[in-house]
Structures are given as structure tokens and as C-alpha cells.
């Protein structure tokens, strides 16, 4: 991300121009189309992540916010190499892991763990808690761990659970407790970076606050960094140091949390902030309300990805895709309206 200060130590995670595309066309027979008397077999490619760059320093929380289908979850999964990136680079501690195979990923996995969205689907229903939370650690140690039970207990204690929970199965827990188990699992290898994909959106409000507090306490204790993916603006504002706003697989704005909320520059960021329900404020008139819906990621629009819904779109937006450019104060915006005069589009 261009807004990042480069002085001091190298970022813990750096992502450069990451592209993630999926071929969803299926087999040849599924692809066959008959039109105008001709047979063709067009491919259908989902452009899930389009040239996203970001970086996270040690101890920093980067929040990625956007609506469903904006590619934020895919971005997270590509970074942990659940997907094979189509193009771009992923660097952990300066090590390029973009094309690491299974064996070379193994040591990297100790630095990077993930917390998942669904507290029900993210735990194997047939495993006991002690096995679930120790799995990443055991795997990294080749299964040879003499003090397994103590370690498991220590992990549970970190997330506010106790001895009595060790031998239970996931279905014996509530959603919030399960999420704690998932967090304990991610802590077991003492990672530097935790990628949290909507970790609280499936939880009740009161439980959500507990988990957010837990995540913040753990960060203070262990000093790791979060890449925090969420659709919830109040959550992202609370937890993040910096925020990236994604739309249709593009990063449209990044900056310090405070700046993004107090002085959003991109029309989409502004609309998103305006739409978020505020406690105790009556639903106002539709002024500033975003019309329309997110276009398909299979046929990306020409030019700016947001132009079809943008109230400020003008001719150039349909022609040319705006680049994410710094506007000062650590903030970067991908909008033609915010391009500094020096950036000559003809160049």
C-alpha cells in the first residue's frame, strides 16, 4: 500500500498486486453455448481479487471492510494460501511465499494462523477440544509433544475456558465458546499474524463484545498483528489501526481508521458509512443512499468498478480504471476525483 511508511523494520505481511481469479466455467460440455448458429465454449472467470496491495506491520491491526462479494474473504484465504494466487506477490517477513508448495509452507504456517467466521462449521464435530486446539502445534512439532495436556490447558485458559472443557465435543458449546476454541487453536503455534475472517459476525451482540475484547487482550499480551476481515463498520472501527475498503475485488480506499471515518474520500466509502445504522438515530430521508447493487465479478465493468452506482461518476470513469494513489495523511484513494493534479492520465 502506497500510504505505508517504509522506514524501520520490514512489514510482517506484504501483499503486492494480488490477483485471484477462479474459473467457474466447469467442464467443456457445461461450457458449450449455441448462439447465432455457432457453437462456442466461453470460459467464465470470477475476478475475485483484482490487484490488491497491502502491508501490515508487527502489532498492527488492518481492517478490511466491504460488502458481500467484494473479495475480502477470498483475499484472506489467498494470503493463507488456501487458494493458489493467480498473480502478484505475498511476502511474510520478507519471504516470498506466493508459490511455496506444501513442504515449504510448513514453517510459514507457524507464523500465520486463521480464525474463521462460522463457529459451527469451523470445528470438526468429531474431535475433542483438546485435539482441536492442539492440532496446528502438534503438526508443526511432528506430533512429538511431551507436555500436551499442560499446553492444551494453558491455551484454553488464555481464551477463558477451563479444564472441564478439554474432553468435550464442539456441539456441547455455545457459539461464543466455540469461537473461543477456534481462537485457542490459532494461538497454539504462537503466530505473528492472525487472519480473522468475520470472526464475530455470527455471534450475538453481547458475545461479540466478549470476543472482540478477547482478541484485543490477546494482541496486547502476545503482540501479534491482525488482518481483520469484516462487513461491520462499527466493529472494524473499534478494532483496526488502519482500514482498507474493498469493492468488487478492488481496494478503493485505505487509511488510518480515524481518517477513514472522519474524512472518507471515496464515494463508496462515504455511502457505506452513511448506510450503517446508528443507534438511536431515526432512519433519515434517502439522501445519499446508494442505489443499485454490486455488479457481477464475472464481467467486470470497464473503467471504475464503482461507476454504475456512483452518484459522481463522469465520462472518464467509464474509460479508465482509477489507481489507488496517496492523498496525504497515510490515506490512499482510487478515484478520479481525488487524483493529484500531477498524475497525468496520459502518462
Amino acid at each position: 500500500m502506497s500510504g505505508t511508511r517504509t522506514g524501520g523494520n520490514a512489514p510482517l505481511l506484504e501483499v503486492r498486486d494480488l490477483e485471484q481469479r477462479f474459473d467457474v466455467s466447469g467442464g467443456l460440455i457445461d461450457r458449450l453455448r449455441f448462439s447465432g448458429g455457432r457453437i462456442s465454449a466461453p470460459r467464465r472467470i470470477v475476478h475475485a481479487v483484482n490487484g490488491v496491495s497491502l502491508s501490515i506491520r508487527r502489532g498492527e491491526v488492518l481492517g478490511i471492510v466491504g460488502e458481500s462479494g467484494c473479495g475480502k474473504s477470498t483475499l484472506a484465504k489467498t494470503i493463507v494460501k488456501l487458494n493458489e494466487p493467480t498473480a502478484g506477490q505475498i511476502l511474510i517477513d520478507g519471504e516470498d511465499i506466493t508459490h511455496h508448495d506444501f513442504t515449504r509452507m510448513r514453517p510459514v504456517r507457524r507464523k500465520m494462523q486463521m480464525i474463521f467466521q462460522d463457529p459451527y462449521a469451523s470445528l470438526n464435530p468429531r474431535q475433542k477440544v483438546r485435539d482441536i486446539i492442539m492440532e496446528p502445534y502438534l503438526e508443526s512439532q511432528g506430533g512429538n509433544v511431551p507436555d500436551r495436556a499442560e499446553r492444551a490447558l494453558a491455551l484454553l485458559a488464555k481464551v477463558g475456558l477451563g479444564t472441564e472443557h478439554l474432553d468435550r465435543y464442539p456441539h456441547q458449546f455455545s457459539g461464543g465458546q466455540r469461537q473461543r476454541i477456534g481462537i485457542a487453536r490459532s494461538l497454539s503455534v504462537q503466530p505473528d499474524l492472525i487472519i480473522a475472517d468475520e470472526p464475530v459476525s455470527a455471534l450475538d451482540v453481547s458475545i461479540q463484545a466478549q470476543i472482540l475484547n478477547l482478541l484485543m487482550d490477546l494482541k496486547d499480551e502476545f503482540g501479534f498483528s491482525y488482518l481483520f476481515i469484516t462487513h461491520d463498520l462499527s466493529v472494524v472501527r473499534h478494532i483496526s489501526d488502519r482500514i482498507g475498503v474493498m469493492y468488487l475485488g478492488f481496494m478503493v480506499e485505505t487509511g488510518p481508521t480515524r481518517t477513514i471515518f472522519s474524512a472518507p474520500r471515496h464515494p463508496y466509502t462515504r455511502a457505506l458509512l452513511a448506510a450503517a445504522p446508528q443507534l438511536g438515530t431515526k432512519l433519515g430521508p434517502a439522501a445519499g443512499q446508494l442505489g443499485g447493487e454490486v455488479p457481477s465479478a464475472i464481467d467486470l465493468p470497464r473503467g471504475c468498478p464503482f461507476r454504475q452506482r456512483c452518484p459522481l461518476a463522469f465520462a472518464r470513469c467509464a474509460e479508465e480504471r482509477p489507481a489507488l494513489l496517496p492523498v496525504g495523511g497515510g490515506q490512499s484513494v482510487a478515484c478520479h476525483l481525488d487524483e493529484p493534479a500531477i498524475a497525468d492520465p496520459a502518462a
Binding site: 455455545s174 463484545a209 472482540l212 475484547n213 484485543m216 462499527s234 472501527r237 473499534h238
Partner: peptide, 27 residues
């Protein structure tokens, strides 16, 4: 009261009040 306080507020930003007030325990 607990439900309302559990929702992250604007005033919590900037490290001043990083902990949310939470309802302890589970339903």
C-alpha cells in the same frame, strides 16, 4: 443496558477506550 453498551461506539476509537463493556457469560 448491556446490549446497548456491547455495540462498539464512535467514542471508543483512538485507543482511549479499547475494551467494550460486555455482558459476561453465555445465554
Amino acid at each position: 443496558r448491556g446490549l446497548i453498551d456491547s455495540i462498539p461506539h464512535e467514542s471508543d476509537v483512538d485507543g482511549a477506550k479499547r475494551r467494550l463493556s460486555q455482558i459476561p457469560g453465555n445465554v
